[in-house]
Structure formats: C-alpha cells, structure tokens
Design a protein around this nucleic acid. Structure first.
Lengths: 218, 218
DNA sequence: AGGCTTGCTTAAGGTTGGCTTAAGGCCGCA
DNA sequence: TGCGGCCTTAAGCCAACCTTAAGCAAGCCT
C-alpha cells in the first residue's frame, strides 16, 4: 500500500509521515507542484490532501484529477472546518474529510476504510477457459466478448460455472430451473444443454453419464 | 436511490426522514428487527445506521452484514463520540462515521460520497452515448440538449443510468416506482419503457429477456 | 454381439414475455 | 369547471423461448 501525503506544515507533515510509515509506504510532498509530479510518476493507493498549500488550492487539483477520470481515493485533511469547505471538498470528489486537529487513530481507521474499498471491490469474475461470468452484471463472456443467452440456458451455465470443474447433478440443475416443484418428466434439460453446446462449442460441457454435467476447463 | 434509515429517536428520525426524502427514496425504521426485515426485502443503495438501538447494537448487525459478504455502503450516525467507538465502527465495515449532532448539509454531502462510489464513481454527471444526467439538478440531456421526462420515466431512466451498462431487474425498477407495495400486476413498466424509447430512440434501452432492461452505450 | 439404457439431435407446436395501441381515470391548474 | 398531463388498464400481436416427441448414437451390461 502506497500513500501520497500532501502537507505543507513541517511539523505535522513529519509526524504524519512517521505515523503512516508504520503501516504503509509513504511519499510526503509539501506543495501542489511536487504532488502533481509524484502523482504522475507513481501509482498511489490513496492520497491524503491538505488544503492550504503554498502554491495553490488542493481542491482545485482534486477537481482536475476527477475530471481526468482518476478515482484514486482522496482523504482531505484540513484545518478549514467550515461547513462549506467540508461540503465542497466532498462534492468535489473527496472520499472523506477530516478536520484538524484529529486523533491519529481515527485517521488510520479512515485510511483503512478507503483502502479496504479499493481492494474489496474486485468484481467476482468466474472463469473457465475462454469462458467468463460476471455475477454482478449477469454477463457471460466468450473469448472476452460478451454474449447473451436465453434465460434457462443462462441459469444452467451460471450454476455450472459456480461449480467450477466439479460435476453438477441433473437434479440440481432441474431444481435451479423449476424450483422444488416435482420434477418435470421430460428432456428439457438435455435440450438446453444442447443449445449451450451449440453456442459455446461442443466440448465445453462434458456429460457425466448417469449423474449430470460439468464444465471442462480446457 | 434508495436509503434505509435506522434511527430510534422519534424526533430526529422524523427530521432526517423528511430531509432525506427531498433527495432520495427512504425507508425509516426504528429498530434492528425492522431493519433486518426491510433489508432482506429490498435493495438499498446505502444505510444510515444509528448505534444505540432498543433491540441490539447496530455495529453487530453491520458486522454480520459484512461477514455475509454484503457491501452496501453504511454510514454510522451516532451520538457516541469516543475515539474507540469511531475506530471500531469504521473497522467493522462502516464507510463513514458521523457524530451527532451534525449539520444536515454535511450528512447529505457524505451520503453523496457513498452513492457516488457505489455507482462506480458516478460523477455528478453520468453519461451514456448521447445521453447525460446531472444528478444534482435532476436534469437529463439528449445530444446536450436538456430534456424533461414525466416523473416515472425520469425515475426509471435515472436508475438505468446509475447502473451504467449493467442490466437492471424489473423488480428493482418496480420497487423504485412503487416501493415495497406488493407487486402491482400490470404492465406499467413496459408502457413507461415504451415512452422512454419513443423519446430517446428505440435502441437506447435494451431488454434483457426474463430479467429486465439495460442502457446501451452506443 | 445384441439388447438395454442413457443421452443427443431435430423440428414442430405451444406458451409466454414483452411491445404497441388506444381509451379511461386521476390530479393539478387555469 | 374544463383542460392537459400523466398514469394505468386492457387487448391484440409478434417473436423468442420452452417443451414435446420421435428417431438416432453411444455407453454399458450379460
């Protein structure tokens, strides 16, 4: 984890820098100019931004970052405690706003919140060979191209992908399609599987005779 | 946007509820029990959580939510101002911690931060192709020309834009329009969609059969 | 091998989800 | 009180989707 600390006050900067270094890698800069340079040349996981800087306003920089599409988490740390300042800072794109003086522990906790988001946000994306599934967006990809499937086939494939390489029983699949309601006595499942195979390629779904089906990774 | 407000104090709850309703759809509940029920039956975009509740501790509920893998943004709003409480709240999984009493404007700003992040860093201005939406002014633009939509269509389109390219389920949309009230058995949604398409162009809203709708970027 | 079972492949209805209209009711506003 | 938006209901229609059914291929037994 790598933080950029932008703080012009020598004492506070020193203290913060030392505090943060117990937990993260930190670059400390004392003006906007330096902040911009550092930011351009490294990838930070979060930025701690003071507002009253010698060579410009931190909020304006933040503004430009956001406009440029950068969404690195930013925590504003400022002595400006007016409501207006806080609201403006947050609305400009800051993720948090901490008013000086603050307790070190709280700063650390709030940094943890920002970093947690960043890492925990990874979209759960299942994949098997040239196939992938993004649960969040309900989207399948085949060779990285999004594909759409009819509802039933969609359900079936989702279950299979969830199971990874493990075989899934017919019952399980039927249940997925029709709920617990007594088993429909028909070959629908097979027909859907056929449809899937036609879409994905013949060998992506193996049949496990007498049991069910499984996805083959290769 | 849909918020769950968990606050047992009658006066404060009322005031907050009114405040928030100027900007979002809000459910206000007064204890954990009700919170759990509501949470199970609806999809909220964020939760405002008081800690001192009559039937248990809000932090514990938060804990269990996070353990269960839910990552709905949570803003703790509490009278407990001890450092320990704040750190514990944040470390348990809260995204922000606001100490009572607070300024309404700040609460709103912090809520905006949470919601902004949720939608993959939705700027104040969302856009998709020739379509744009300015959340602040509740204004849509088509080819950069401001357009006005009837209330229901406005809501639908707003939800779709928040979701970006992801499909949104019918249920989610119906909920947006009518709240939890048991499913209205009708085709209103489809009629509204039809209206939208007539306004925006036929292909801007794709239907995901058996599921819902999604905005198409191109 | 021969018979038996399980699963594959097709094409033809049947069903349903969603689209499109038009008409009626509600509400706010002049 | 009438007018104009807007929302809902209802009905007909189309296409996508699901199921059925029947014949065929491939495993699996004795």
């Amino acid at each position: 984890m790598f933080l950029l600390l932008v703080e012009d006050d020598l004492n506070l900067g020193n203290a913060l820098s030392r505090l943060l270094k117990q937990h993260y890698r930190v670059h400390w800069v004392r003006n906007l100019e330096a902040a911009k340079n550092h930011f351009a040349s490294a990838e930070y996981d979060a930025i701690l931004l003071d507002l009253g800087l010698p060579d410009g306003d931190g909020v304006e920089w933040l503004q430009s970052l956001r406009t440029a599409g950068c969404n690195t988490p930013v925590l504003i740390v400022s002595a400006r405690d007016a409501l207006d300042d806080r609201v403006k800072g947050l609305d400009t794109g800051a993720d948090d706003y901490l008013v000086k003086p603050f307790e070190p522990e709280e700063l650390l906790a709030r940094i943890r919140v920002l970093l947690r988001r960043k890492s925990g946000r990874a979209q759960p994306r299942l994949s098997a060979g040239n196939l992938a599934y993004e649960a969040e967006s309900r989207q399948f990809y085949l060779d990285d191209k999004p594909i759409t499937l009819p509802p039933k086939e969609h359900q079936i494939l989702a279950v299979l992908m969830q199971a990874g390489e493990k075989p899934v029983s017919r019952e399980r699949l039927m249940q997925q399609l029709y709920g617990l309601g007594d088993g429909v006595d028909s070959n629908t499942l097979e027909v859907h599987i056929y449809g899937l195979r036609k879409m994905l390629g013949k060998d992506r779904i193996e049949t496990v005779r007498g049991f069910g089906y499984r996805l083959s990774g290769a």
